[in-house]
């Protein structure tokens, strides 16, 4: 669980708006994490105490804000979100029944799809129309529901690709080994560190295609961390992962928060969400119908109507069984 200090500093550099209190907690959390993960106090405990549990409510320190985001496919409106504000440094879960538009919304947030209307801003700066590949440099990295490990490349190459702003990735410098050799070895050292943290060091030279589904999820998460993000968006990180690995993945997600990285993730599995999330946003039929802490959401009648109370409540645990068996 050890995280190098450089990465934390870099988070701070990437993200000058980050409040002192979070950074302080991060340093402490990181140290404690090295000893025993379970004992870390939630660094943002109490942050949501004064937050109104209604859709679009303002947060004390917002990293990502989406307003009036609409996406239509033909005559069908897939997403129509009035307002969503994501708290920095917290784990926010985006849940909703199948077909609620979660992944579409994710694509809109990350520039993989363009909204017909609306406005998304990251750290207060609008990212409308910003090409998806530029968002990584701004501190936002995503993963995919169907893992996109680069199958015919080694695990190590996958990791190395995650690092941003590499000089050797420019055609003009690529042949001048001397110009990027030093940076390459730094990136490699960082990749080795992350692989060790995710217990994948022994697989570094394997083709990514040889990994199991859960290992690929881990790889994708580790790879995303190579970019030193301040916000990481995970699209169903637990789908298709066997139960043993789920706990490990959850541990990694919590550790991210403890280091000050904001996490937004989509998930089906209610047990997972309740245990790990600091805040939950509920999407149904393309709109946000509720927000709140896990306790608030699970007792919200609208949510129970739309999601928990209907057949989907049962389906979620069934769904988990199905996925685990893969």
């Amino acid at each position: 669980m050890k995280t190098g200090d450089p990465s934390e500093k870099d988070v701070a550099i990437e993200d000058p708006n980050a409040p002192e209190v979070v950074l302080g907690a991060t340093a402490g959390g990181g140290g404690a994490g090295a000893a025993a993960q379970e004992d870390i106090p939630n660094p943002i405990a109490g942050t949501f105490d004064g937050v109104d549990p209604t859709p679009g409510s303002p947060k004390p320190d917002e990293i990502l804000v989406a307003k009036n985001v609409v996406r239509r496919f033909g005559g069908l409106t897939a997403v129509d979100v009035d307002e969503v504000r994501i708290q920095r440094g917290a784990i926010t879960a985006l849940i909703g029944p199948n077909g609620a538009g979660k992944t579409t919304f994710f694509n809109l947030l990350t520039g993989f799809d363009d909204p017909d209307e609306g406005d998304v801003s990251l750290n207060g700066n609008s990212i409308n129309g910003v090409a998806s590949h530029k968002l990584a440099a701004r501190g936002m990295v995503r993963t995919f529901q169907l893992t996109k490990s680069l199958a015919k490349m080694s695990v190590m190459d996958n990791m190395l690709l995650g690092a941003g702003d590499q000089r050797g990735e420019k055609l003009s410098f690529s042949l001048l080994r001397g110009s990027w050799r030093k940076q390459e070895s730094e990136v490699r050292a960082r990749a080795e560190e992350l692989l060790e943290r995710f217990s994948m060091t022994h697989m570094a030279d394997e083709y990514a295609a040889t990994l199991s589904g859960g290992q690929r999820k881990l790889l994708e998460m580790a790879r995303a961390l190579m970019a030193k993000p301040s916000l990481i968006l995970l699209d169903e990180p637990m789908a298709g992962v066997n139960p043993a690995l789920v706990q490990s993945l959850l541990g990694h997600v919590e550790a991210l928060r403890d280091e000050g990285v904001s996490v937004l993730f989509v998930e089906h599995d209610m047990d997972v969400i309740m245990g790990i999330s600091d805040w939950i946003v509920v999407l149904a039929e393309g709109s946000v119908i509720a927000e709140g802490t896990p306790d608030q959401v699970s007792s919200n009648p609208r949510v129970i109507d739309a999601y928990l109370g209907t057949e989907d409540g049962g389906a979620s645990s069934d769904g988990r069984q199905g996925r685990d068996s893969e």
Binding site: T143, S149, M153, D157, L161, R167, E169, A227
Partner: peptide, 28 residues
């Protein structure tokens, strides 16, 4: 030489999965 440089690595990542490359900040 090109294909063992980071440039070549980025190129191969596009061959493997363009979306993943873009998510990792590569201008595919």
């Amino acid at each position: 030489q090109l294909m063992r440089s980071p440039w070549g690595r980025a190129l191969k990542s596009i061959r493997e999965d363009e979306d993943a490359a873009r998510a990792l900040g590569k201008n595919a």
